[in-house]
Simulated assay, not measured.
Amino acid sequence: MPGERSITETERMVRAKLGDTPIRHEQMAMVGNIHRAAAAVRQHVENSVLRGSDLTWTGFVVLWVVWIWGEMETRQVAEEAGISKGTLTGVARTLESRGLVRRTEHPTDGRRVLLALTDKGEAQMHSLFPEFNAEEAFVAEQLSDEECLQTADALRRVVVQIEAHGEERRMQLLDGAPPVPRRSGRRPKA
């Protein structure tokens, strides 16, 4: 589990710290627990299954996207994997050096790049995914099949809300201004 404190202890401390602050506690708990659960699952799966295959979570997700959808443009892979194109470039180079993916020029536009699994990458996903899924079952062990479906549906609705209305909300919050550009972790040298 990420961090030293239990989820119950964290929730108790948050309630004590915020006290009468007028916030929506239930929604805060839901979003906080999405993050905490995702981090715990990611860390567990990386340490139990992926490390043995010398893969990171992000590397696995990239392989998964290309395994499911087939050959596709790198910008689409990055979007589906929820990572930046810059991050994908590094991950794809690593996966390519291990013989799991191949990068090729787009047939009509040399500026675009396609990503596909190699035979070795296909074999890797066929052998690795059952192990990955066994850990999915392990982390959901406290839930019934019905609770798993209900949770999946609730999370799907969270995603749909953001996909359908997130841009409109961002525009409202920023008064129509574009978001501040993301910065890398690097800062200018003094």
Rank of each mutant, 00 (worst) to 15 (best):
T56I: 08
W57E: 15
T58Y: 12
F60E: 12
V61Y: 08
V61P: 03
V61K: 07
V61N: 02
V62K: 07
V65A: 05
V65S: 01
W67D: 09
W67H: 13
W69M: 13
G70A: 00
G70M: 09
E71Y: 00
E71D: 02
M72K: 11
E73W: 00
T74N: 12
T74A: 15
R75G: 05
R75K: 15
R75F: 10
Q76F: 05
V77M: 00
V77T: 15
V77Q: 00
V77W: 00
A78M: 00
A78C: 08
A78F: 04
E80D: 15
A81N: 01
G82Y: 01
I83V: 04
K85P: 09
L88E: 05
G90H: 12
V91N: 04
A92T: 13
R93V: 02
R93F: 03
E96I: 01
E96A: 14
V101L: 06
V101S: 05
R103C: 05
R103I: 07
R103P: 02
T104A: 15
E105V: 04
P107V: 10
P107K: 03
T108Y: 08
D109G: 00
G110F: 03
R111H: 15
R112Y: 03
V113K: 12
V113Q: 13
L114H: 03
A116S: 14
A116N: 11
A116W: 05
A116Q: 13
L117R: 03
L117T: 12
T118S: 09
D119P: 06
K120M: 13
G121W: 00
E122W: 13
E122I: 08
A123I: 06
M125R: 04
M125W: 01
S127A: 14
S127M: 13
L128A: 02
L128T: 04
L128V: 04
F129S: 09
P130V: 06
E135H: 15
E135G: 02
F138G: 10
F138R: 14
F138P: 01
F138S: 04
V139P: 04
A140R: 14
E141A: 12
E141S: 13
Q142C: 03
S144L: 02
S144I: 03
D145M: 02
D145P: 03
E146F: 03
C148W: 14
Q150H: 10
T151H: 11
D153Q: 11
L155P: 00
R156Y: 08
R156E: 12
V158I: 14
V158R: 12
